[in-house]
Design a protein around this nucleic acid. Structure first.
Length: 358
DNA sequence: CACGCGTGGAA
DNA sequence: TTTCCAAGCGT
């Protein structure tokens, strides 16, 4: 029988499909939001964010009309914040160019910011019923095992090999369910570690299982060692408020607010590091006071240990009025500013110490 | 095209 | 505690 993989997989999916909040929803915007949130992020993490997001921004128009700060605030905690800014930007494009309705073609979808090859195929097939492949990490792993692909999965050849398999296996008219079935299989059965081959609906068709190479598929390349930085941050007080600085839009935590500071240099003391960084960033000298906690955090490409200190400006202060990227915030206002994990931890400590002092 | 970009959960 | 991620995208 032709396309045995598709027929078996779809048969399995009828009963085994996960019930997820964005499944069975006919609104393409909902599918779009879910797909962007799911980029590099676990389903269990996404679910509560998705529910909150759809209440807060139920339509493309409501998202397009929101401020970037509110959008980032709603995204805070999920990471990869450029996704939120791209989604926001794309919503405004969809209002302007398509009357508020997502375009129903892979070619048009992929032109929108934040929608790449995978997401374009996923939205096209799931939301619009088009015959498009959607190859993500799950699908690559499943096909690498089914066809015992021995090429490194992230090499150009490995990627193209799987793309070709995906096109060959796609069942016409059923791409949406088939793509989701592949991802569910990858998430529940064909796991990265210890795949559950005994209960796999495709076990008789799996070449890696026949060859005993499941554990070696997909072939991954070695990862570089990640550096560990020591950094400092200043909680600068004035009249019961603290100073927040907004990070540049490009790069790590783009557009998010933080307590300013920076990397410790060789042979430098923590306090000297902080004084130097604040002069560099804000052009004003500070005095560094009491320590305000040590915070550890692991990003994807490096780890940090951050030392925070309570500080004051010595004499002249930076001209905050009119500056777009710095603000004095009262403790109860800190929740209104989107921050990454570490800075949110510092902000929470400020709020809790403030309330404890009363 | 290789690399930068977050976070929290599991083993 | 450390390691390894998890439904990719933009440059």
């Amino acid at each position: 029988m032709h396309k045995q993989i598709a027929s078996r997989l779809l048969n399995w999916y009828e009963d085994a499909a996960r019930r997820l909040p964005w499944r069975g929803v006919s609104d393409p915007y909902a599918v779009w939001v879910s797909e962007v949130m799911l980029q590099q992020t676990r389903v269990e993490t996404v679910i509560p964010f998705y529910e909150r997001w759809m209440r807060r921004f139920p339509t493309v128009q409501s998202l397009a009309e929101a401020s970037e700060q509110d959008v980032l605030l709603a995204w805070e905690g999920m990471g990869y914040y450029n996704r939120a800014r791209s989604l926001h930007k794309a919503a405004r494009q969809v209002m302007r160019d398509y009357g508020g309705k997502l375009p129903a073609s892979r070619e048009a979808l992929i032109k929108l910011p934040g929608i790449g090859e995978y997401s374009a195929g996923a939205i096209a097939s799931i939301a619009f019923g088009l015959d498009e492949t959607a190859v993500d990490g799950n699908v690559r792993r499943v096909y690498a095992r089914l066809f015992d692909v021995d090429t490194p999965i992230k090499s150009p050849e490995g990627l193209e090999r799987v793309e070709q398999i995906a096109r060959e296996q796609l069942p016409a008219g059923l791409a949406g369910d088939y793509n989701q079935a592949l991802m569910d299989l990858g998430a529940m059965i064909c796991l990265p570690r210890e795949p559950r081959c005994e209960i796999c609906p495709l076990k008789e068709l799996c070449l890696a299982r026949q060859n005993g190479t499941q554990a070696e598929r997909p072939v991954k390349s070695a990862k570089p060692e990640i550096p560990h930085w020591t950094v400092t941050a200043a909680v600068i007080w004035k009249d019961g408020k603290v100073l927040l600085a907004r990070r540049p839009l490009n790069g790590l935590l783009g557009g998010m607010w933080e307590f300013p500071g920076g990397k410790l240099e060789a042979g430098e003391s923590l306090k000297d590091c902080l004084k130097r960084e604040i002069v560099e960033e804000l052009d004003a000298p500070i005095e560094v006071g009491e320590a305000f906690g040590v915070y550890k955090h692991a990003y994807t490409h490096f780890k940090v240990t951050l030392h925070a200190f309570a500080c004051r400006f010595v004499s002249e202060e930076p001209d905050v009025d009119g500056a777009e990227f710095v603000v004095w915030a009262a403790p109860e206002e800190l929740q209104n500013y989107p921050m990454g994990k570490i800075d949110r931890d510092i902000a929470r400590r400020i709020v809790s110490e403030r309330s404890a002092a009363r």
